[in-house]
């Protein structure tokens, strides 16, 4: 029971401080891997991969997954509620009392500083995910997974081509799963 409260509390905090949507929850989830033994970094990469390739907002999927991983079905519901409740409260307060919230001088100024920081936080988290996904962490040494790195580089390159940016992410994900099976990644 105490663990459930802890889970709720941690995700409540994430819901309250993760500014910038789904990807912004990633650095917080990484904090959790260091703070508790709920899930490992390796499991977190699986969560991200699954959350990206299933319907629903990334942030919600990751929260549900993390909760289920930690404490089963009930854990999934608790973590998701924890994540969502601050949003409901904050948004209703803003909709009710703060006309022109996003035009407010102080809000604008604060976000002028928060946006580059969120970019930095997400960048750091993504590098962590890349490290675990593209390298085998065995002992002290990092063993590169050559095939995975190549595929990642090719797709990142393709994503920079304007015409290909319209392609739905799920198409990339499905083709990569097939490539993975065919070439025995």
């Amino acid at each position: 029971m105490k663990e459930l409260f802890l889970l709720f509390g941690e995700f409540f905090k994430i819901g309250l401080f993760a500014v910038g949507g789904g990807p912004a929850t990633l650095p917080f989830l990484m904090d959790l891997t260091e703070k508790y033994d709920w899930f490992t970094m390796k499991q977190l990469t699986n969560m991200v991969a699954i959350s990206e390739s299933t319907p629903g907002p990334l942030g919600l999927n990751m929260a549900t997954y993390a909760g289920v991983q930690t404490m089963g079905v009930f854990g999934g519901a608790v973590s998701t509620m924890g994540l969502v409740i601050p949003s409901i409260v904050v948004i209703i307060l803003i909709a009710k009392f703060m006309e022109g919230f996003s035009e407010n001088r102080f809000v604008k100024a604060a976000f002028w500083g928060i946006r580059p920081a969120v970019t930095a936080l997400i960048a750091a988290a993504v590098l962590g995910i890349c490290k675990v996904s593209l390298f085998v962490v065995g002992g002290e040494q990092l063993q590169p997974e050559i095939k995975t790195i190549c595929l990642c580089a090719v797709i990142f390159g393709l994503l920079q081509i304007k015409k290909l940016q319209k392609i739905h992410p799920i198409v990339w994900i499905l083709s990569a799963a097939i490539i993975g099976i065919v070439f025995r990644f």
């Binding site: 910038g20 990807p23 990469t45 699986n46 991200v48 991969a49 990206e52 390739s53 969120v118 970019t119 997400i122 960048a123 993504v126 995910i129 890349c130 996904s133 593209l134 997974e145 095939k147 995975t148 790195i149 595929l151 990642c152 580089a153 797709i155 990142f156 994503l159 920079q160 992410p169 990339w172 994900i173 083709s175 990569a176 799963a177 097939i178 490539i179 993975g180 099976i181 070439f183 025995r184 990644f185």
Partner: peptide, 22 residues
């Protein structure tokens, strides 16, 4: 095998998100 492939794309997509955010 499939998940390893998916991970490669997820990394690429996320790096792309970072680039767009930057």
């Amino acid at each position: 095998h499939a998940l390893m492939g998916v991970r490669a794309v997820v990394c690429a997509l996320m790096l792309n998100t970072v680039l767009a955010l930057a």
